[in-house]
Design a protein around this nucleic acid. Structure first.
Lengths: 247, 247
DNA sequence: CCGCCTATGTGCGCCAGCACACAGACGGGC
DNA sequence: GCCCGTCTGTGTGCTGGCGCACATAGGCGG
């Protein structure tokens, strides 16, 4: 990976005007996010907003009985720390790094000030937030009504779209905790996909061989979320071609 | 019900400054919402924002296979039409009246303009939106990990808190479609609650006899959502006492 | 190169939810 | 006061996912 850490690898930053981006540039701070890092703990006052470039972060909710579910994922299409400008300053959910990589961060104050300027940046952040809500809603319904295999396909596609390489560093157990299902359920579903030649995996690695196979087997949820992002953030390069370009 | 249709029965409107409320008053239009009315269809351009007073509306998502789930409910604590100011103008979900009653509505333009004034109203709407996101997330996790009985208790409590009378006009089938489960599942769970003396029901009516019983049997999700609303909207009368005052 | 840790495979029994089916019962409309 | 539509209470058999338990195997650290 010899790519320069260009802020514009983050689609939200990329869709800002040159002027806006230059103003922000002085405050953007490159950070390395390691697998498992907890960016935000539940109910904790947020100190930074993050714009991932290569990292992928999972908004996670852990229940009292220990069970957990991913409410949504955030990668190079988005931003973490929405509650800073929404006014809550914290959320009951936590943010955990799902794929190691980099992100640009902005101090809470700068992000809030930027939002309150009220220009294109505010519009963008709000539209992104709405897209995120769609993703959450869709995920909720998907949890309820679709099979583990369908959900797995949806999840893999969304992760791929976030610019991950074809090979994810990810165990069955981790994926299971993302989807809020049993590890064995993932083993079984992944086994089916592997037998069908769509993915291959070995101890902690999952490689996607046939993206189209995933699309066939995924439920509608993937497309719905995808289209809604494209509709709401048309300038953020939200098209398949771009998403896959680095693949 | 001889109560005057006072806009302040809606907690969001109630927490506005006198000046703000007076400015809005000229545009607020009282509407009668009947059970089953669809306020917003999926992907349809929104024409109004609604501030329910006695009505309760369900944000619903219907999947291709016909299965459906409530993503969140909105009553006198909130507002419908978030996507107007979030920038999307529409959402993939629909809004259906769950409990007949009244709501004040505001034309899309007025709501957007009001939001863009950027004052207390904007703050309030954003904070409400964050609370709504919490509710959606929590509902999603709850769907995944808690029993039907727990979910039913949570749902009843949230509905009561929205100022509904002790007796809900609601069939098992309707509740089932809210929670995204089978009608028979509700019949069973409701049967348990009735045997325990917590509720009583007959053909299309559900009466809550012992609120505390519901609280005991509900999962943590109810409290989490409740507290988050109270934290984010402290001026909106989000305390138990107020919510029950009319009960 | 070996050992151990951890990821994966698999086999239970169990429960929740699905599809369907039907009996009884309530209640609104005539 | 009667009728019929709708709501509720059960029941059946089936599937998918859960919890648990354990066997196996891959690969990293020493």
């Amino acid at each position: 990976m010899s790519s320069l850490p260009d802020p514009q690898q983050n689609h939200l930053l990329a869709s800002l005007s040159k002027a806006d981006l230059e103003r922000l540039a002085a405050h953007l701070e490159l950070t390395e996010l390691r697998l498992g890092d907890m960016l935000y703990a539940p109910r904790e006052q947020l100190r930074y907003g993050y714009f991932p470039t290569t990292a992928i972060v999972s908004l996670h909710y852990v229940m009292e009985n220990g069970a957990s579910t991913e409410a949504a994922g955030v990668g190079n299409e988005g931003v973490l720390g929405i509650s800073l400008f929404m006014g809550g300053e914290s959320t009951p959910s936590s943010a955990v790094v799902q794929t190691a990589g980099q992100a640009y961060r902005l101090s809470a104050k700068v992000l809030k000030d930027e939002f309150n300027r009220g220009g294109a940046m505010q519009l963008l952040l709000l539209r992104y937030t709405q897209a995120l809500m769609t993703q959450m809603t869709q995920t909720a319904a998907c949890n309820r009504h679709h099979s583990i295999e369908q959900q797995l396909c949806r999840w893999l596609l969304l992760t791929l779209d976030r610019g991950a390489s074809r090979e994810l560093i990810m165990t069955h157990g981790l994926v299971a905790s993302m989807l809020g299902v049993r590890r064995e359920g993932i083993t079984e579903a992944a086994g089916n996909l592997q037998r069908a030649g769509i993915i291959r995996y070995r101890r902690g690695h999952i490689s996607v061989l046939e993206r189209s196979g995933l699309e066939t087997r995924a439920c509608e949820c993937y497309q719905v979320v995808k289209k809604e992002y494209a509709r709401l953030l048309p300038d953020a390069g939200y098209t398949r071609s771009v998403a896959v370009a680095r693949g």
